[in-house]
Simulated scan of single mutants.
Amino acid sequence: MSINSSKHSLIFTLFLLFQLTSPITKALAGTPHLINFRSQNLYPESLAWDAKNQHFLTGSLNHRTISSISDAGIVETLISDTSLPENVTVLGITVDSLHNRVLAVIHAVHPLPPYNALAAYDLNTGNRLFLSLLPSDDQPALANDVAVDFKGNAYVTNSIGNFIWKINLQGEPSIFSKSARFTENPVDRDSPCNFCGLNGIAYVNNGYLLVAQSNTGKIFKVDAEDGTVRQILLNNVENLTCPDGVVLRSDGVVLVVSPEANKLWMLKSNNGWSEGVVYDKIDLGDEGYPTSVVARERDRMYVLYGYVKEGVLGSLGRESFRIEEVRSPKESEDENVWIYVMVGFGLAYFFYWRFQMGQLVKNMDKKIN
């Protein structure tokens, strides 16, 4: 084998490795996606991702609407339900892609008369499929967030009563899980979220729910069949601070966002969520009050900055809001290491191949001579 031939082979191999890894490197090094959008007095609290139509969905603190937001920040009113009581708030929303629906939690904020409901709308037509008033047995109630399972059952958290409603595919509601586990932990009365109990909720494919409790910082695992509850031990933190929105990524990682702590926690478990670990914590800044997080294709994470606290305190007139992609420094490090491993493996393979070819040439020379 000639020296020039080896050099050309090495150059070709390095060029091939560069071509393979360059798109990944550019993706990791690129600027996170920022979506600024404008809608007068929208103050959205919840965010969902509609994978079929490739846009975000949000509710509103002040309007009886669900809006779609494109990657370019174009806002369109997808659903306007004027048959709902005036001045209600559209809180948690989620997309039920298997049944082509969007589910929305409807709540009336004090001092308006109590009103807690779940509405379901067809994603194609915007027509309302049902409106289910949520029973509370004359107990205080604040319907907050919603998750849906593969059968179309929806689960809604009650942030004041600390229980979970279940609404089946036909819109029939019931009180589902009212475990004493939800009220056994002490509440810090000086906490800014002391009034808010069960909050963000996500359905896990194995047949259970993960639920965050804002005023204790606890995460609970709830059986989706019988409603039994166990508290998840997070073995490297005592509590999360005022957890709000919760979402499950396709790789099993759970994302939890806090508007009071301005943090995004990334949790994972290797034993079916008997316990878990916070393996990354991301600072979100202190402006915008991030209440909700979603994961879209390739598990890209997006956080909603809806300025809800500003709206709750009575401010009017804001029209600028944003959705921002968030990246994990921990995962970026791991991905970069993997790229270097690929390059190293390629070089090692090349030099091994070069050595073998050199040995082959020597053996052939010996036979010829």
Rank of each mutant, 00 (worst) to 15 (best):
5 S>Q: 14
13 T>Y: 03
17 L>N: 06
20 L>P: 06
23 P>A: 04
27 A>N: 15
27 A>Q: 15
28 L>K: 01
28 L>I: 10
29 A>M: 05
37 F>Y: 13
41 N>C: 02
42 L>E: 03
43 Y>G: 02
45 E>R: 05
46 S>W: 05
47 L>P: 03
49 W>T: 12
49 W>R: 08
54 Q>M: 11
57 L>A: 10
59 G>K: 01
61 L>C: 11
70 S>E: 03
74 I>L: 14
74 I>W: 13
77 T>R: 10
79 I>C: 10
80 S>N: 15
81 D>F: 03
88 V>P: 02
89 T>H: 09
91 L>D: 12
93 I>V: 10
96 D>V: 13
96 D>K: 11
101 R>M: 07
105 V>D: 01
106 I>S: 00
112 L>C: 00
115 Y>C: 00
118 L>N: 00
122 D>Q: 10
124 N>D: 13
125 T>L: 07
129 L>M: 06
134 L>I: 00
139 Q>W: 03
142 L>R: 13
143 A>I: 00
145 D>Y: 04
146 V>P: 01
147 A>F: 01
147 A>R: 00
151 K>C: 03
152 G>V: 05
152 G>A: 08
155 Y>K: 01
156 V>Y: 00
159 S>W: 02
166 K>C: 04
167 I>V: 15
169 L>I: 14
172 E>L: 09
173 P>Y: 02
177 S>I: 07
177 S>Y: 01
178 K>W: 05
178 K>G: 08
179 S>W: 05
181 R>L: 08
184 E>C: 13
197 G>S: 07
201 I>P: 00
201 I>A: 04
205 N>P: 09
207 G>P: 13
208 Y>Q: 09
209 L>K: 01
211 V>K: 01
211 V>A: 04
211 V>G: 01
212 A>M: 08
215 N>G: 06
216 T>C: 09
222 V>E: 02
223 D>I: 08
226 D>N: 15
228 T>I: 12
229 V>R: 09
231 Q>H: 12
236 N>P: 07
236 N>A: 09
237 V>I: 09
242 C>S: 13
242 C>M: 10
242 C>D: 11
244 D>A: 06
254 V>Y: 03
259 P>S: 08
261 A>K: 02
262 N>A: 11
262 N>K: 09
265 W>T: 02
268 K>H: 14
272 G>F: 03
273 W>P: 02
278 V>E: 08
278 V>A: 12
284 L>D: 04
291 T>I: 02
293 V>K: 05
298 R>N: 15
298 R>F: 14
300 R>H: 12
302 Y>F: 15
307 Y>I: 04
309 K>M: 09
311 G>Y: 02
313 L>I: 06
316 L>D: 11
317 G>Q: 10
320 S>W: 09
322 R>L: 06
323 I>Q: 01
324 E>V: 11
326 V>L: 03
327 R>N: 05
333 E>S: 12
335 E>F: 12
339 I>H: 07
343 V>Y: 01
346 G>N: 07
346 G>T: 07
346 G>K: 03
347 L>Q: 11
348 A>C: 15
359 Q>V: 11
369 N>G: 15
